[in-house]
Amino acid sequence: MKISDITIKTFRTYADRWDVGHALPLPNTQMMQTVLTIHTDEGVVGHYFGGGSHGDNEGLNVVDQQQILWRIKDLLVGQDPMDREMIWKWMWVANVQENVASVIDNALWDLAGRFANLPVYKLMGGAGREKVKAYASTYPNIGKPHVYAEHALACKNEGYIAYKIHPHYFWNPETGQPTPGRPSNIKADIETCHLVREAVGPDYVLMFDPWGTYMTMEEAIQVGREL
């Protein structure tokens, strides 16, 4: 079995999103979505939905699509779709950005699952598990620290067993306006963590994802010690 083609379908869709820069909801926002398909000469296909900056929430942008159709496709046509590790290495040494390489890799896994008539998690080992635990995860900049605490408690009351804080990125929680990201908002981030912990109690599982936005190692250590 050989890869014979790669196609991308683009379509318009709508979803509720979040304006990270202004801490405002964006209901029913128009978005571009994509489905990439890897085809083979035996008729087996693999699909991947999405691949943009928020994973499967939005599609590949035009530049990423062109890279796939005019560069990566030439590398892959004629190759065995089961050689996923080799194909990943090719994309790695070709400096293909991670989200694009991941779309190809996920589509190849989907193709393998369809060929074997098994769900992909079974191909990866399965371990007899058919469920995964779910946790609530915020957008960045959902508001001032007390807003995170209120939201965390609401999520706990809805039944979520854990809560992840994405704190204040490129946004000033005092003014509610975007910033260049420097200096970091570690004071507000620390306050957020304290208020969330007080709201949900001592035994509730919490996570913290500052997304690499702290300016210095010292800032990261300061927040880490507080956690």
Rank of each mutant, 00 (worst) to 15 (best):
E58D: 15
H146M: 14
R12P: 04
V147L: 05
W109H: 04
R225T: 12
I72P: 03
A134S: 07
R84M: 14
Y163K: 01
T40E: 09
V96Y: 01
C193Y: 14
V35E: 12
V147Q: 01
I72V: 11
R12Y: 03
D64P: 06
I186N: 01
Y169F: 15
K144T: 15
Q66I: 00
D203K: 09
V132N: 00
E42G: 08
R225Y: 07
G201W: 07
I6E: 09
L24Q: 15
C155W: 03
G113Y: 02
M215V: 15
L76F: 05
E150H: 04
D56F: 10
I38S: 06
G143M: 08
E42F: 01
A94S: 14
W90P: 04
G224T: 05
Y14Q: 09
H194F: 11
W211T: 10
P81H: 12
G125Y: 00
R12F: 00
L60I: 12
F115C: 08
I87G: 02
K2Y: 08
N141R: 05
N95V: 13
M207K: 00
Y160D: 04
G113P: 01
F170W: 11
N106F: 13
Y214W: 15
A116H: 06
D83E: 13
D105S: 05
V77Y: 00
Y48N: 12
V147P: 00
L69E: 03
Y48F: 13
V44I: 15
V196C: 09
T40N: 05
M86C: 09
L60E: 00
Q222W: 02
G176I: 12
P173H: 01
A15K: 11
A23T: 10
Q66V: 10
Y48E: 09
T138D: 04
K9H: 09
P81N: 12
Y135G: 07
Y121M: 05
E158Y: 05
G201E: 09
D74E: 15
N141Q: 11
I68Y: 02
V120F: 00
H47V: 11
D56E: 12
S53M: 13
S53D: 15
A188S: 06
E98T: 14
V120I: 14
D189Q: 03
D56M: 09
V62Q: 13
P183K: 03
D74G: 14
N172H: 11
E98I: 15
P145K: 00
L24M: 15
L195G: 07
Q97L: 12
D41A: 10
A162C: 09
I3Q: 02
N117A: 14
E218C: 02
L24N: 11
E158V: 04
A116P: 00
K164S: 05
R84N: 02
Y204H: 07
G159K: 08
R12C: 02
F208R: 00
